[in-house]
Design a protein around this nucleic acid. Structure first.
Lengths: 345, 345
DNA sequence: TTGAAAGCGCTAACAT
DNA sequence: ATGTTAGCGCTTTCAA
């Protein structure tokens, strides 16, 4: 089933069929309809390989699939990937997967892919300080978008990115806790330097400051995990001036925190028990949060994925009309997360 | 960077370079080394598109990415996908994604993909009774493997598949509970007819039978979910002859069950409280199980993915030598799950 | 063992 | 508005 078959069926030349597909305005109405009917009748679809040879475009977007590392937080990558695949299809692109375990091996994987499959663009996730991947891609003038801000851009021209405003998320969560009457709102986050983590902490800190609450002794730093979260929460709850609410940088930490609250008789699951229950809020709205009734900050992942694809489509399919003055005006998207309220806060 | 550049660099004809890559035994040692050096030096890799035009092989494996539906159990698909991508790369294949929301739309997606990208094979997940996808693919003689048994094959020739022996998993879990002294071991599973669910229930039932334990009043059927699991577990725990252990068809159900146990003071998290704690075991060893200390039956997902790829590679790269008498001897793989013991049982 | 010729299906440039 | 020509990079004959 080739373009020649269609041409024969529609009694036109091969080229006319090609024109109907790629430059319909060049073909007379009647001819076009006849060709389209033939295409329909024969169920023809252009071979991507042949097309790629000619045009140099593969209509493939490559992205890395992560090992679902930590388990709880890994699930968000899954949702992002699904959104990406769906949105890409809408623009006539397909998603090609590769694996890697660090920046360097990802560069190697990208290089490999490039030579063989020539993906038109890349979507990078998990940007971090000192990310060498973006520079590598930028140097080679390869089209790409990151899901995640460039956390350490030494000035210079940036690249297109989509991200979720984590600080706004924790700020909203903190505000909610303040509104519920809490003053001693603890924060359990990751060690300084992680970009994402610092951002989330910042939203909490600035909201507390704006409300005139002293954050002294309310900030805890720990690696991600349920056990570490439980320990840090224990710290905050057993302090001289104990926290009454715990905001966490991840659902893993929050799950641990709610265990700590529970074992001290102040958890939201400990029905009754006297006094206001200890509030706990997580981040990412993972399956665990949904399943356990944990209030959590939710990232609009499908939307983020859709933005990534839209950005790429604009770059690749060169919609000149929408390019800003400097061409970079709308290549940065910061999406707002939302607080999903459940039983825990 | 084409094969011509390499030929020039190595001072041989284009064809010889191609032979070095595709039929090394035809090329004299010295020439081959020289060509390989040129390939290395230039960083050449064959264009997949051009190769595909000639050979009709895309070295692409297509699979569906699911919407991470239920949340908790969806994460296993993620892990499978990662394994698939990694294993495929080992055989020189890449994984191409598509989405669909039911059998019919999946067939449409596959059909679409086929015409444009010509993937060499498909990996189908989530087989079920009355699955129309496999028949569709088989009719067209398209290479594919399913992760999941054909649950309703009306005799006839089957297709290659890889699955995990769910019954063996629940059997092992039941045996473990029996060994720990439990006799009243309840099972909370999905409504009859789901293949996977029936299988898991069967392992429990036959192990109880083998131990001479009467299963009367110990079997509960409910849709998947945390809330439904909690309710069913409540039923079993509040019965005249209450269950002392709860085996569940999923981690979602198990999570609900452990909540029920907890609220009745018999949960494994209720330290002390007198008497043996109520044991709970889940299925799939998801992040939730890991995070909450839930004992769960673990599926070897990377291995399953590796088997899928290996099966496909054998079919596609036609390793005649390893083909059995009837060619189907080793196209069905049933992997054994393992019980991951944690605090809950 | 190596090289030359042909052609996979498509589209960009040019000719009609 | 439609048709003709050429060639993308590769591999499969076939010839040397």
């Amino acid at each position: 089933m080739t373009i020649t078959d269609v041409a024969r069926h529609a009694k036109v030349s091969r080229q006319t069929v090609s024109n109907v597909i790629n430059a319909p305005e060049l073909v007379r109405e009647g001819t076009r309809r006849r060709v389209l009917e033939s295409i329909e009748a024969l169920g023809y679809r252009a071979s991507q390989a042949a097309r790629q040879m000619r045009t140099g475009r593969s209509r493939l977007i490559a992205t890395r699939i992560e090992p679902a590392e930590d388990g709880i937080n890994g699930t968000i990558h899954d949702r992002f990937l699904h959104g990406l695949t769906e949105s890409a299809a809408g623009f006539g692109y397909r998603v090609l997967l590769y694996t890697a375990h660090d920046d360097q091996s990802e560069i190697a994987a990208v290089d490999d892919l490039l030579a063989a499959y020539e993906p038109d663009a890349f979507v990078l996730t998990g940007t971090h300080h000192g990310d060498v991947r973006t520079a590598w891609l930028a140097e080679r003038r390869l089209p790409f978008v990151t899901f995640g801000r460039p956390w350490s851009m030494p000035e210079g021209p940036s690249h297109p990115w989509v991200d979720v405003d984590g600080a706004a998320g924790t700020a909203a969560a903190t505000r909610h806790l303040l509104d519920t009457g809490h003053r001693r709102i603890g924060f359990i986050g990751w060690p300084t330097g992680s970009g994402v983590g610092d951002d989330r902490r910042a939203g909490w800190a600035r909201t507390l400051a704006a409300a005139g609450v002293d954050p002294a002794g309310l900030d805890r730093t720990t690696d991600d995990g349920v056990a570490t979260g439980e320990k840090a929460a224990g710290d905050l709850l057993d302090a001289d001036r104990p926290a009454t609410a715990l905001l966490c940088a991840s659902d893993s930490l929050a799950l641990g925190a709610s265990h700590a609250a529970l074992s001290r008789g102040g958890g939201w699951r400990a029905d009754g028990g006297g006094g206001t229950p200890i509030a706990v809020i997580g981040f990412d709205d993972t399956s665990v949060a949904r399943a356990t009734g944990l209030t959590s900050v939710s990232q609009p992942l499908s939307e983020a994925a859709a933005c990534c694809v839209a950005l790429l489509a604009r770059i690749l399919d060169g919609d000149e009309a929408s390019a800003g003055e400097d061409g970079s005006a709308t290549t940065r998207v910061l999406l707002q997360p939302s607080l999903v309220r459940r039983q825990s806060a």
